[in-house]
Design a binder for these strands. Structure first.
Lengths: 335, 335
DNA sequence: CTTGGCTACGTTACCGGTAAACTGCCTTAG
DNA sequence: CTAAGGCAGTTTACCGGTAACGTAGCCAAG
């Protein structure tokens, strides 16, 4: 009868001669039973390899489950890996389970994931970006659970937002480069279809340049994943069109490193002939022979803050709707 | 009454004038009802924003849930990011939800995660590595669900294994370097406490060198996370002790790139003065000015295969217990 | 001696969905 | 004319845990 690992509360109750309610109370560390009963119950549960059934617990009670969903644009990005890590550490410590999803920068995939996740009645969800389908927004409103939008700051979040402004990142880089005397700037990007955030950085960059009187000379946006190769070939293409550029802002660090590799190959001196600026703050970028000029994003912190905001809301503690995370433009030896 | 998004089967049944069983069958695409009934039910469900409750569904039935757990050593590793991506893509397509966990290379943390996850009665789990606590193994045996151990191949898996031999990776590199004329090899590693896999590569490497008659001269294993800095400073320390080394095998590509950076800084010519070999197959490594000699691991494929093996077992299809994934030693310009 | 309060439990009802068994009604074969 | 069978549903029971409420026994205060 004491088949290992298949026992439920009732089985334990029978073996110990108490009711299953008492077993439930003991195992959840409640009160209203003698020490002797507690020890007997715990011993039996242990002996029988009892594994609680959270499905039943979460299903029964109106109180929220301990499931939290998180959807990121890509799982293979170093940056989002750190965000996930921050979220996972914070939530695991507090006894939550994390359900991941990946939307490939597509709101429609996010909605599809959301429909799946909501059917598990999670305690809350963390989404990245602020572009959501109307269906997703409606679903979230109806679900009535905490929602944290991360990465791309929204001043009017669905519920809460933790992140920074990509536009401002671009502006800061634009102003910085003009101050450093750059006059003919280019941009190399790559968008897996609908990456609005890289787009925002470029727009901020461009706007700052216009304001300073030295508008963006040219840009090359590849329809490719924003990696090393895209940076390498993107710069090649851009320079073929406009060899007179004196600085290039890249979609991210991986691409900038690709650009650096191209320069090294062609004997283009960095930063004398051409400035190279990335974005993101990859660990790699800071140890390369030439330290890359880039914007460092505190990724783990964003994940941690998002998780903590979500849990605070669940506990009914006061939380601010919008948490701004400061990024840092770190001048290196390339820009 | 038709509060959006809070409706359950019964509510829809009342509105459409059928029983909730019929609603259930319609929404799951079964049969045994007229087209007219189906349309009415679907229309009502849509109108009322019905969100199925998988908690109830999974709870009720003995049939497995659509939850799959996956535990990786680290979320911030580029390699595991790709593994997660492979798993996620394959499982999402098949209608499963993924629950992630991270054990920081510690079996005890894996067991803690496992206890949480098993309480959600998942359809199966994917674990990385083959070191598990006795408690975890017992739990898995009792749970009686498919288990796939990935990354580090086991010939006697708990259930199934998809991966490759780290030891063999090391052997292959050792043999390769001896063939290329290297005679005084060193190793630079980093272990966040209990990384047995890096250890296995080093042992294979060392064994191959011994067999060839040119045993490993020295090694430097830092108690640090295996990143760029650890590679940089690890090589510095190692060369301070043994300046006569003619090649160094690194724990992974990040560290090897750190080592390359150190060489560049110190004017050490690569590969003339010193060979540098990495492991893993980071995208970065193939575009650097000097293409890194490394072992490429088909990460996404491992994730995909693991997911597919798990699902095949769930469907009762025949699956081989051990799937060997071939890694590829790619000679670059540094080794 | 009664009342009230406390401790240490036990009982009941319910969460939302689904498998399995059952029920009319209509059609068709023998 | 009856039996058999299919269609389009309905009814019932149950999964495992928990909230809410109930109760027996004991002790102390009034």
């Amino acid at each position: 009868m004491e088949r290992k690992g298949k026992a439920n509360l009732e089985d334990i109750a029978k073996v110990t001669g108490v009711s299953k309610m008492t077993v439930s109370r003991v195992l959840r560390g409640g009160q209203g039973f003698s020490d002797e009963t507690r020890d007997r119950v715990i011993a039996a549960a242990d002996r029988m390899g009892y594994v609680p059934n959270r499905l039943a617990a979460a299903f029964n009670s109106v109180q929220a489950s301990t499931l939290v969903g998180i959807c990121v644009p890509r799982l293979t990005s170093g940056l989002f890996g750190h965000v996930l890590d921050g979220v996972d550490r914070a939530l695991t410590r507090l006894g939550y389970q994390v359900m991941i999803g990946c939307n490939n920068h597509q709101p429609r995939e996010e909605e599809a994931w959301l429909r799946q996740v909501v059917s598990w009645r999670p305690a809350g969800v963390i989404l990245s970006g602020r572009s959501h389908t109307p269906g997703a927004v409606e679903l979230l409103h109806n679900a009535g659970m905490p929602v944290v939008e991360i990465w791309d700051l929204t001043t009017s979040p669905i519920d809460m937002s933790v992140g920074f402004s990509h536009y401002d990142c671009g502006v800061e880089v634009g102003q910085f480069l003009v101050r450093k005397g750059r006059r003919r700037a280019g941009y190399v990007g790559a968008s897996s279809r609908a990456d609005v955030m890289g787009q925002a950085r470029m727009e901020g960059f461009s706007a700052a340049l216009v304001l300073a009187g030295y508008p963006l000379v040219d840009r090359e946006v590849l329809l490719d994943s924003p990696g090393f190769y895209a940076g390498y070939y993107g710069l090649e293409t851009l320079l073929a069109r406009r060899p007179d550029l004196d600085v290039v802002y890249f979609h991210n660090d991986e691409m900038a490193i690709g650009g650096l590799a191209y320069c090294q190959q062609r004997g283009i001196r960095v930063p004398e002939d051409l400035g190279i600026v990335g974005w993101g703050g990859m660990e790699a970028a800071s140890v390369l022979p030439r330290r890359l000029t880039t914007t460092v994003v505190p990724t783990t912190l964003i994940g941690k803050q998002a998780a903590e905001a979500l849990v605070a809301r669940l506990k009914g503690e006061p939380v601010q709707d919008v948490t701004v995370i400061a990024t840092r433009l770190v001048p290196g030896e390339t820009g």
